[in-house]
């Protein structure tokens, strides 16, 4: 009995030590790689922020009106944003290298997937960013226009435009990533159809009212003209 128990314990200890000896070094290596990557990321970001001369880019963004879309009261600076992107890219590279240290089929597949997905993700992010930019810009333009034209609910109109443009960007990004493509495209078509229908109804009602008013005005002016002929008598 005791012998069996000892055998089991020895076996489990051997398994544990085997697992530890096979996984601990890669884990340690991964931690070290990640730490080094973090260190490099911090250093590179600091170096970039110290040396980068992105004033031309700030100026371009300001002059093109792109930076104003963020709506901050402070002038927009590109350097911290680029610095953050560099930081996270280095950290991500460290993470992938750390995962690769395990040298298992699962980690290899994970790394492969991430590496292949990365360019697509970058492009999708750019699409989203552009969508948010354009959405904000158009929304603000619509808000100012609606206020100047004395239209009702200008804020809702602006919000509607912003949501619509950003949603269009989300659809495009999802399509690019091949993620729930049908769902997004269907939703988008439904929204566009709804907008067109609402616009059509609004236009029809406006035309109807205008024609009605014209008709009433016309019918009212005729007798007045006739009456005026006799008024002087």
């Amino acid at each position: 009995m005791i012998g069996t128990l000892r055998a089991i314990l020895e076996q489990s200890w051997q398994q544990l030590s085997a697992t530890a000896t096979s996984y601990l070094p890669p884990l340690l290596a991964a931690v070290v790689i990640l730490f080094v990557a973090w260190l490099v990321a911090v250093l590179v970001r600091a170096l970039f922020l110290r040396l980068a001369t992105t004033t031309w880019l700030d100026r371009f963004l300001a002059e093109s009106g792109l930076s104003s879309i963020f709506g901050t009261t402070r002038p927009f600076r590109t350097a911290p944003v680029v610095g953050a992107v560099i930081y996270w890219l280095i950290l991500l590279a460290g993470l992938l290298m750390g995962l690769n240290a395990f040298n298992t089929s699962i980690t290899s597949r994970m790394v492969e997937t991430i590496v292949f997905l990365l360019p697509k993700l970058a492009l999708a992010s750019l699409i989203l960013l552009a969508g948010v930019w354009i959405g904000h810009y158009l929304a603000r333009s619509a808000l100012i226009w609606a206020v100047n034209e004395n239209l009702p609910y200008p804020r809702r109109l602006a919000a509607g435009i912003r949501v619509f443009v950003i949603f269009a960007a989300v659809v495009a990004a999802a399509d690019h990533l091949n993620f729930a493509r049908t769902v997004f495209v269907m939703a988008f078509l439904l929204v566009v159809g709804g907008v067109v229908l609402a616009g059509g109804i609004a236009l029809g009602l406006t035309l109807h009212k205008t024609l009605e008013r014209r008709w009433v005005e016309k019918s009212q002016t005729a007798p007045q003209e006739e009456r005026s002929l006799w008024d002087h008598l």
């Binding site: 009106g65 104003s68 100047n148």
Partner: peptide, 16 residues
Amino acid sequence: HRRRVQRGQLLRSFTP
């Protein structure tokens, strides 16, 4: 001058 807001939008918002 500072381009804090897109210039066209800034000037149009001045109307009210």
